[in-house]
Amino acid sequence: MKKITLLAISFLSATVLAEPPAKIDVSRLPKESRVVDDVIVPVPSEIFGVLDKLGKPNWAGVLRPLKGVAKPFGEPQQQALYLGSVIAEGFIAVEAGDVAEVKNIGNSVLSLSGALGVRKAVTKRANAIINAADAGNWPLVRKELDGALNEVKDAMTELGSGDLASMVSLGGWLRGTEALCDVVAKNYSKDGADLLHQPALLDHFDARLGALKARAKKHALVPKIQAGLKNIRPLIGLTDGTEISAKSVKEVRDIAAGLVKDIQTK
């Protein structure tokens, strides 16, 4: 799977594409033309990379160190949300250059993955995270964290737990959003706040929560998160290019922080 064949190809002779239409009506894209996975959820590195370009945030001040290796608790939905939030914390620990915390998070990812039945799928990644942190190879730690996130989700999907895979993404998104808001709120800039404009992702997560099986929907966290997403929606700009105010950034942070606290509380 995903193998790379090594054929010698010269791209120098690549031809320019036939002119594609300059404008399309995106509101009328036929349903059958949509790819099954309705939106590509970006990896955290895409956002952290932009933040790096905007300045040098005080990541150590944003990092919320775990108290030892995270232990699973609650039902699978909460475990999956918790795992996602821990992986997001890993990205913050990388930004903060905190070797001990990155290693702790690597072990926590193993612990939480075990409870969800996907430990085997991420063992190699978790070990790579720990080793790369020891070596101070931060770009590699980032890459392995991205990979761990994907492999956890792939393994869950293969086990028929696509709903839980979405919960992992959602947990990561909420903690990542809280951290992003923290950084932007401390040193507000329009470009930094603009990173919060993610309407397709909000719609995606809302749709995933709405499509959960009846039993999963009964988990207390589900309606709380649905309400939180609904409240965040108008704060992140209704159209592309809308300026997101410092006040809105703080409001989004408070909503996301509240949800992350609920996720991480027994």
């Binding site: 894209l29 033309s33 949509r34 309705d38 970006p42 932009v50 905007l54 470009d191 990173l195 397709a200």
Partner: peptide, 11 residues
């Protein structure tokens, strides 16, 4: 086929 994607200014 259409694929929806969230992209970030700065990347």
């Amino acid at each position: 086929k259409a694929i929806t994607h969230q992209l970030f200014k700065g990347n």
